[in-house]
Design a binder for these strands. Structure first.
Lengths: 118, 118
DNA sequence: TGACTATATACGAATATCCGAATATGCCTA
DNA sequence: TAGGCATATTCGGATATTCGTATATAGTCA
C-alpha cells in the first residue's frame, strides 16, 4: 500500500535522524566519542590521543557538534568537549555488539570448515 | 588517516563499525529498515511503499546488504528482504529518542521565550 | 524455447566529501 | 598592547557519492 503523500514532518525528522547516523559514520569520530566516555577532553588532548593533525580534529568535532553529539565548553584557552548524551554510546555499543556477533559467527564458520577438512 | 601506534585490530573493527553507521546514514535507508520491522518485503513492495524508482531501491538495499543490515532471500521471482538483526531497530530508536528529546527541549525554549515576551 | 516480470548492475555527469597546508580567530599573560 | 598558545576556518584539488537512464541478469511459465 503506497503512502500517497508522505507526511513532510516524518520526512524532515528522518533527515535529521540520518544526519545523526552520518555523524557516527566515521572511524575517527567513533574513536573520538569513545574517548569522551569517561570525562571531557580538550582539542589538544584529543589531537594527541588520536594522533591526528589539529585541523582534522577540529573538523570532526565540528561535525559532531553540528549533529548535537558533543558539546564544547570553553575554559580559558581550552575548549572541553563532552558527550551530549550518554545514549549515543549505548547506540554505538549496540551496533558494535551486532558487529561482534557477526564476526564471531563468521569465525566459527571458518573453525568448522577447518575441522571438517582435517 | 594515520593512527600508526593504535592496535590495528581496533582500527579495523572501528572501520566496520563506521561502515554500519554509514549504512544507517540515509533517510531512505532508515525508512526502508523501519518498513521491514514487522515482516519481510520484496523489492517491488518496497519500491511502491517508499515511492522510489526501482534501481534506487536496489542500490540502497545493496548497501544495507553489504553492511549486514538486511538479508535477502529469493522466493521465485521475488527477493524478500528482512532485518538481519532486531537490535538495528533498537539502535535507530535510541538515536531517534535523542533527537526527539532535543527537538522537544528546543521547542520548550521557544515556548518560554514567547511567554516571557508577552 | 520466447515472452514476461522482478531485480541488479553499468555508465556518466553533477555534486559532495575529504584532507593537507596555510591562515584566521580567540583568549591569556606579561 | 604584543606575543604566544589553542582552536577554528578557508582554500583547492583529489576522490567519492549520488541518481537517472539504460541495460543486464535471473526466474517462471506457456
Amino acid at each position: 500500500m503506497p503512502m500517497n503523500s508522505k507526511p513532510p514532518l516524518l520526512q524532515e525528522v528522518t533527515e535529521l535522524h540520518a544526519g545523526i547516523c552520518n555523524g557516527l559514520a566515521d572511524p575517527t569520530r567513533i574513536l573520538m566519542l569513545y574517548a569522551l566516555v569517561d570525562f571531557p577532553r580538550n582539542v589538544k588532548d584529543l589531537t594527541e590521543t588520536l594522533e591526528l593533525p589539529q585541523p582534522t580534529t577540529s573538523r570532526h568535532l565540528k561535525i559532531l557538534r553540528q549533529q548535537g553529539l558533543v558539546i564544547g565548553e570553553r575554559k580559558g584557552l581550552y575548549i572541553y568537549y563532552r558527550l551530549a548524551d550518554r545514549r549515543i554510546i549505548e547506540a554505538l555499543d549496540l551496533l558494535r555488539k551486532i558487529l561482534n556477533d557477526r564476526l564471531t559467527y563468521r569465525a566459527s564458520l571458518v573453525e568448522n570448515y577447518n575441522t571438517e577438512q582435517e
